[in-house]
């Protein structure tokens, strides 16, 4: 099963195991990783699961949809080229070892 590592704004690292197909948001929230709020539960409606994806994985994380693109524009923390909404990244074998930095403000 693929693993994903979360780096919290305070620098804490948490590595978790994922089910294939689970979103990066879902894994964090279920395990109580702080900083990912995800109020809408993954409906791409709230922009409170903003993460910065490690450069090495940005291609494997997939395309940003128009909807996600617009949501990211309104996110609380600065938008960077590696910004994603973690509810829109689904775990798979290619993403094993993925690292994401949690945006400081959600």
């Amino acid at each position: 099963m693929p693993h994903v590592t979360y780096i919290s704004p305070d620098g804490t690292e948490t590595t978790l195991e994922a089910r294939d197909g689970d979103s990066v948001m879902e894994i964090a929230v279920k395990n109580g990783v702080k900083g990912i709020v995800a109020e809408c539960g993954g409906a791409c409606s709230c922009a409170t699961c903003h993460v910065y994806v490690d450069d090495a994985f940005i291609a494997a994380a997939g395309e940003v949809s128009d909807l996600e693109d617009d949501m990211l524009d309104g996110a609380e923390s600065e938008r960077l080229p590696v910004s994603r909404l973690s509810c829109q990244i689904k775990m798979c074998a290619e993403l094993d070892g993925l690292k994401v930095r949690i945006a400081p403000k959600q």
Binding site: R19, D22, E26, V29, K30, N31, G32, C40, G41, G42, A43
Partner: peptide, 20 residues
């Protein structure tokens, strides 16, 4: 919220509904 949306449509399973 997903009960009347993604869960009903089959895009989300029971385990995914759990908060924690």
């Amino acid at each position: 919220p997903p009960l009347s949306k993604a869960y009903l449509a089959g895009d989300m399973d029971e385990e995914s509904l759990e908060f924690r």
